[in-house]
Simulated scan of single mutants.
Amino acid sequence: MEITENITVENNAALIVIDVQKGFEDAFWGRRDNAEAEQNMAALIDRWQETGRPVVFVRHDSPRAGSPLALGTEGNDLKDFVEERRGRGTGPELFVTKTVNSVFYGEPDLDTWLKEAGIRQFVIVGIQTNMCNETTARMGGNLGYDVLFPLDAMHTFDLTGPFGWKQTAEELTRATAVSLHGGKFARVVTTEDVLKGASAQ
């Protein structure tokens, strides 16, 4: 993945870490893309915490019976590399739970928290690229935020849709990137872009 542009990361830009949960390791989801996603997520969390920028950790509490992400199951837990980083930063931290795709419909209210802190820019990482990540990016763009979307710090799974149509995880990732970037909802970038832009406060 080529570097796309020089990115300016604001001193108070938030990192939103979406649904990095153990349940996504379940065979239920099928084949995934981007084996480097977790390593890139970790690098971005570390950079945010080192520089005192705000981090939002998000957990999906699925209301669906039998879901690998159901509340009260081990799959609902955040993956170890994320859980062990919670509370380690010197900057503000928020923990949001949700039952739908967009983090903006979670509790506590993300939009209120961002606005009260004067935050106008945020970076999305996590799972899944074309589901909760994309939905949150679209809403963020509509609400007037500057959304950065490092495509290599997230992943998704192969999916079957209507009429028997099937798309690979890579095809879905590319479609999300084109829709978000081309539609001006977000700027699709790389982890390296963001790390360089967030090198100092």
Rank of each mutant, 00 (worst) to 15 (best):
M1L: 09
E2P: 13
T4L: 14
E5H: 04
N6L: 09
T8S: 05
T8I: 07
V9R: 03
V9A: 05
A13P: 07
A14E: 10
L15A: 13
I16R: 05
V20G: 11
K22P: 01
K22S: 14
G23A: 04
F24V: 06
F24G: 04
D26H: 14
F28H: 15
W29H: 13
R31F: 01
R32E: 06
Q39F: 01
N40L: 09
M41V: 15
M41F: 01
A42Q: 12
L44N: 11
D46C: 04
R47D: 04
Q49S: 07
Q49P: 05
Q49A: 10
E50R: 09
R53I: 14
P54T: 05
P54A: 10
P54K: 11
V58T: 01
V58N: 04
R59C: 12
D61A: 15
D61H: 13
A65R: 09
G66F: 02
P68W: 05
L69I: 02
L69W: 06
A70Q: 15
G72D: 12
G72F: 01
G72P: 05
T73W: 03
G75F: 09
N76H: 15
F81A: 07
V82G: 12
E83K: 12
E84Y: 04
R86M: 15
G87M: 11
R88W: 01
R88C: 08
T90A: 15
G91N: 07
P92G: 09
P92I: 07
E93P: 10
T97P: 01
K98F: 03
T99W: 01
V100G: 05
S102W: 01
F104Y: 13
F104P: 08
Y105V: 00
L110H: 09
D111S: 12
W113F: 09
W113Y: 11
L114T: 02
K115P: 00
A117Q: 14
A117F: 00
R120I: 00
V123A: 08
G126M: 07
T129K: 10
C132R: 02
T136Q: 03
R138D: 11
L143T: 00
L148K: 11
P150W: 09
T156Y: 00
T156Q: 02
F157C: 05
L159I: 00
T160N: 07
W165D: 13
E171H: 08
L172T: 03
T173C: 07
R174L: 15
R174Y: 13
T176M: 12
T176V: 13
S179V: 14
L180Q: 08
G182T: 00
G182A: 02
K184P: 00
A186E: 06
R187P: 07
V188E: 04
E192K: 08
V194E: 10
A200Q: 08
A200E: 11
